[in-house]
Design a protein around this nucleic acid. Structure first.
Lengths: 169, 169
DNA sequence: TAGAGCATGTAATATGTTACATGATTCC
DNA sequence: GGAATCATGTAACATATTACATGCTCTA
């Protein structure tokens, strides 16, 4: 449902066609969930069947025709319902990256440290990327600020853990 | 794959049957990913087919017989491969709960604040739960420490945001 | 004797990813 | 002339959840 909430939210502020949406989704590294191209198309199709959105066929010159989606009245109602649910509850986050942590001790300390150091760099890269987002965009996009905050605290934590592993050695 | 890594990791330290595993999974609120009962059974079945684990049928008294799973040599090799991958890379976390943040402004400020306040309490509850885990368990379970750290920083952030929304009013 | 616990699973459904298909247009 | 871009999607597969089925045992 969160993916539909995301789509409805975007479409409410600007009517868009699928391709355009995908560009938004791909180029912003600041998304809190994954949404792939083909899945976005499928979800748009589903929401259209359910009457949450409608589209009008549009064509610019001889370009392939495209479907510009607009949220219907029912869709808008659904959006508000989903939004309220999403804000008040706390759908549990998934941290696949944390699964290995419980088993670090299965590896020799130096190797574990080296691997985590690699990870630190990967996280650092993502953090930097979010760091370059201009302030005026940050203000209207709380999720980016959220992720920025998350990756920052992640980096701190990783440093602590790496350090702890090393000094225990 | 992370779920299989999780299962292999658990089974390497103690051979277990499915039911026992599920008890571990359910009662520890400190898991970084979701793993439901029927999915665990299915994954065990798959891993058995792939030769990563074997089981021996066991029976206590007249209780329903159970399958005690043990990791094979191949399974162990897979475990180490998955563990190295998991530690060095950083599979992106999913934050379904953050999706709504970008759209808070679609609601009247007071309502948004009230909803987020509700969320804060939900997060607080989870945090408290992790907070009661005794230190000796924390030490051998980095993921719990990880989640504890995460929910803590989440609470701080929520407080800041709620405050910001209110004072902008 | 009724209900909770033990122990396994299946069937139906939902959700999501990957790779592929199409065919025009624009840019180099 | 060839590659990238525009724009849509489908088919096959992978993954996961929900609800249900079974049948025994132990406890109140």
């Amino acid at each position: 449902m969160e993916k539909k909430l995301l789509l409805l939210g975007y479409l409410l502020s600007h009517s868009m066609h699928g391709y355009q949406l995908n560009q938004v989704l791909q180029h912003s590294a600041g998304l809190p969930i994954t949404l792939t191209k083909s899945n976005a198309y499928k979800l748009l199709g589903n929401m259209e069947t359910d009457g949450w959105v409608t589209y009008r066929e549009e064509q610019e010159g001889n370009r392939p025709s495209r479907r510009v989606y607009t949220v219907t009245k029912e869709g808008k109602a659904v959006f508000y319902r989903l939004l309220r649910e999403n804000l008040s509850a706390c759908p549990t986050p998934e941290f696949p990256a944390a699964v290995g942590l419980d088993f670090v001790h299965a590896l020799p300390v130096e190797e574990a440290v080296a691997l985590l150091e690699q990870r630190r760099q990967a996280v650092e890269a993502r953090f930097q990327q979010l760091d370059t987002v201009p302030d005026e965009i940050l203000q209207s996009h709380l999720t980016i600020e959220y992720l920025h905050h998350y990756y920052g605290s992640e980096l701190e934590w990783l440093a602590v853990i790496i350090d702890r592993l090393q000094t225990k050695d």
